[in-house]
Design a protein around this nucleic acid. Structure first.
Lengths: 333, 333
DNA sequence: TTGTCAATATGAAACGTTTCATCATCCCAC
DNA sequence: GTGGGATGATGAAACGTTTCATATTGACAA
């Protein structure tokens, strides 16, 4: 088997306690001995057994990361940043997928907690608190709130607001909105922000105001495509000249629907997405979208989980509008 | 703190050894006692401490998964399947990104090995063997080979062959090929397969044969776009009527380049990708591509790592051509 | 010389399991 | 009634650390 601290101690002619203190770096240890022990460690290729240490210290160097679906580019991006930052601090990341299933989520979180992680970063799918979640582990939720826990998220209302504002200022009046599942807070906040801006517009331009057409589905490509078709299937006179979506995936699905139906973007239809996933700037046309500063979110989440200070309740970040090629003034104007 | 096995033993009036045997399920234990112990466990909410167990057993329930970039849809898909299968077997997945950097890879693998994983699933970026990697942990590489280790991969030559075959049979003669980095085996195999089919064609249709135009870059979107532009910038008379790529990301980049330059797909240009990432069937037009059976690859990799049988050297899977909308007969015909 | 203090090494306990060699019961055959 | 198997519980050791109380040493002051 691998050499243990005992082997090092024996070979270096000191006690295991001393070796341990050498390992701990900051402890006071006689220089000569330190050198000898370090040489021995090098010589026999000793690597501390992390299990022994963790058992003794009753904590691990592991961060649990629970996401609905790692295949979703937004969460993949989150995972990448979390992993980068965590490994820079000597932590490893344990990945779990919930597939948007509350039952699976509960299961996953429970086995994760069983591994005594240093902290948990969670994108929750349900509001059902897992037993012991509150008590035990430092937990930060990302993107979606979970009562009783710190949340790192973008200001979704502001995001929806920006999308509507951009389209209105380009001159669009007949707007469509492709929403995410009505049950999720994220989704309703984005929609709310969108509607709030429209409402403000109505206050000042009552005559010019047109009620938006809203459809609702999932956050994924397919849903964007289907709902997009539904909105675009109308005669040109009533069909929206611009559509905002609750996710870039939806927006890309919508792009596809538009292409299928011969609706040109941005000439006949303007589109603004949400998230700014990497692909957003690679589709044709490049997608105008509301960017979530996901690197910043990862950093805050990890700081929250690893930091020793008390957890804030909410870290709301400001989304920003990325103007690209999928929006233009309506063709009539 | 959490209740320990000692608490259970004490409360149930038995020894810790007995509780342990109850936990082990398959051991012989008196029925009454079993019931009482289980009740006690339930009553005080005892959860075995996994660190104590792992230390004693000198092994963990953790699978290390090392990929170049979790943001790449292909690896995200791999991670999803590995995680699903692993968690069904009671294992958790530790995720590490190497960013295609050999130094980072070495670092990541070393800290991973320090955690004594039950096995390692690795998409290697370099051929430098990590010390102790061979000796210690059951390791399976995926997608790319690493000498001395089991490999799960698609038959890349066959994939390239299929792509060329499809394009030839549609009537294309002036072919282009966008390759991945020449240094990677995966990339050269795909290209090789492509060229082999062309060579066979030349044998039988020497007069009809045109040498393919080959460009080389990275596997990502951007590279596909740039290299695509380079190929398409030629006058229509010499420009390829069909291009195969080494990845779907490249193909999607190429799609974008074509769109930018007013080259219509599939009318003016046929495209066939490689991988069949989820997005492939969602772009417009839907991408004809060489599919890697990634779920199967994940299953084989996990079986290899967890199974007790000796590791095979190679599991080569057969890729399959997915005919979708990005290919058509050349417009002249 | 003795006492004191600082510096630093030591040994053992503790973390929570599993396992193995013992030990206690009980039942049955003779 | 005794011997001997089964059956099943027990106690202790072991896994590899860290830490804490204790021991050792040397220097220096009184």
């Amino acid at each position: 088997m691998n050499p243990t601290i005992k082997d090092v101690a024996q070979r270096a002619g000191v006690s295991v306690g001393t070796v341990s203190r050498v390992l701990a770096k900051n402890k006071t240890v006689n220089e000569d001995i330190r050198v000898k022990v370090e040489a021995t460690i090098e010589a026999i290729g000793y690597r501390p057994n992390i299990l022994g240490r963790s058992l003794r210290l009753a904590k691990t160097d592991i961060i649990g990361l629970v996401v609905p679906d790692i295949t979703n580019p937004f969460f993949a991006e989150l995972a990448k940043h979390v992993e980068m930052l965590a490994s820079a601090e000597g932590y490893s990341v344990l990945l779990a997928n919930t597939h948007d299933d509350p039952e699976a989520e509960k299961q996953q979180i429970e086995t994760l907690l069983g591994r005594l992680p240093a902290g948990l970063i969670l994108v929750p799918v349900s509001n059902s608190l897992v037993d012991g979640l509150v008590a035990g582990t430092r937990t930060v939720t990302v993107d979606r709130p979970l009562s009783g826990h710190a949340l790192v998220a973008v200001d979704n209302r502001q995001g929806g607001y920006l999308a509507a504002d951009h389209l209105l200022s380009l001159g669009h009046r007949r707007l469509g909105y492709i929403s995410g599942p009505g049950t999720t807070e994220v989704s309703s906040e984005r929609r709310e922000g969108f509607l709030r801006r429209l409402e403000a517009f109505r206050q000042t331009h009552a005559g010019d105001y047109v009620a938006p057409q809203i459809v609702e589905g999932h956050f994924d490509y397919r849903s964007g495509e289907e709902l997009g078709k539904r909105l675009l299937m109308q005669p040109a006179a009533t069909r929206p000249t611009a559509i905002a979506t609750a996710s870039d995936q939806q927006a890309i699905g919508l792009l596809r629907a538009a292409g299928d139906m011969g609706v040109r973007v941005p000439n006949d239809l303007s589109i603004v997405g949400f998230d700014d996933i990497p692909l957003a700037s690679l589709v044709l046309p490049r997608l105008t979208t509301i960017r979530q500063p996901i690197d910043e979110m990862a950093r805050l989440a990890l700081d929250g989980v690893l930091g020793s200070h008390a957890l804030e309740e909410e870290y709301k970040l400001q989304p920003v509008l990325m103007r690209r090629g999928s929006c233009a003034a309506p063709s009539g104007s």
